[in-house]
Computed example of a mutant assay.
Amino acid sequence: MALHTKGGLCAALLLMASATAHASFDCNGSHGGFRVQTDDRWTGTDKLEHFGVSAPFGAIGGWLMRDTDHPVIYGTLLGTVPGLVKETIDGTCRTDGFSYKDLFADALGALTGAWLTHWAVMYSGGSHGKTIGVRYDNTF
């Protein structure tokens, strides 16, 4: 499968899964304008939730981008897409707003997931079969 096809498929799957992963949309059907949260804190359980939800997306992105030159960077970008979509939707809510602090927690979680996947998972395919295992690779 070509790299752009695999990346597009991955992005589509991540976008579909983001609705279930970030299930706490508090808009109540009321949208209008675009707002940015200014009273948001850097700490709290909300940031941990964003980090925890984005880490698996980063791991999936890192796994799908494992054959590229920079799988951690591309995996992080793919893993951050669901958080960006959620924050953009929050920005249109009358009761909420776009939070760059939440998006930072999403990106940090995606980076952690992509890096751990790249560092820990080995995949190789040959004429005798496929091998999946644990390994260490220092390529960023």
Rank of each mutant, 00 (worst) to 15 (best):
123 Y>L: 14
64 L>R: 05
28 N>P: 02
78 L>P: 01
37 Q>E: 12
136 Y>G: 04
87 E>Q: 08
41 R>V: 11
14 L>Q: 02
126 G>S: 15
29 G>R: 06
19 A>T: 08
121 V>T: 03
30 S>I: 09
13 L>S: 05
65 M>S: 11
45 T>A: 12
100 Y>L: 10
73 I>G: 00
85 V>I: 08
22 H>T: 03
37 Q>L: 14
63 W>H: 07
106 D>R: 01
136 Y>D: 07
63 W>L: 15
72 V>P: 00
137 D>C: 09
67 D>V: 11
123 Y>V: 14
122 M>G: 09
18 S>T: 11
51 F>Y: 12
17 A>P: 06
57 F>S: 04
79 G>R: 07
68 T>V: 06
105 A>S: 15
49 E>M: 11
61 G>S: 10
96 D>S: 14
72 V>E: 02
134 V>N: 06
61 G>A: 09
92 T>D: 00
113 G>T: 13
69 D>N: 12
35 R>E: 05
47 K>N: 07
118 H>Y: 12
35 R>I: 05
52 G>K: 10
95 T>D: 15
103 L>D: 09
126 G>Q: 15
58 G>W: 10
69 D>S: 13
66 R>V: 09
34 F>D: 03
54 S>A: 15
77 L>R: 00
67 D>K: 13
89 I>V: 13
67 D>G: 09
14 L>T: 04
34 F>H: 02
80 T>D: 02
88 T>Q: 01
22 H>R: 02
89 I>T: 03
19 A>I: 11
73 I>E: 01
26 D>T: 12
106 D>M: 02
38 T>P: 00
98 F>C: 03
74 Y>I: 02
120 A>H: 07
82 P>K: 00
88 T>Y: 02
50 H>G: 04
46 D>P: 10
76 T>F: 06
105 A>Y: 10
96 D>F: 03
29 G>C: 08
46 D>I: 05
51 F>Q: 04
39 D>Y: 06
53 V>A: 10
104 F>C: 10
80 T>L: 10
69 D>K: 13
108 L>G: 14
116 L>N: 11
110 A>K: 02
111 L>V: 07
120 A>T: 15
122 M>P: 00
36 V>Y: 01
47 K>W: 02
122 M>S: 15
112 T>C: 15
64 L>Y: 01
120 A>L: 15
59 A>I: 06
101 K>T: 07
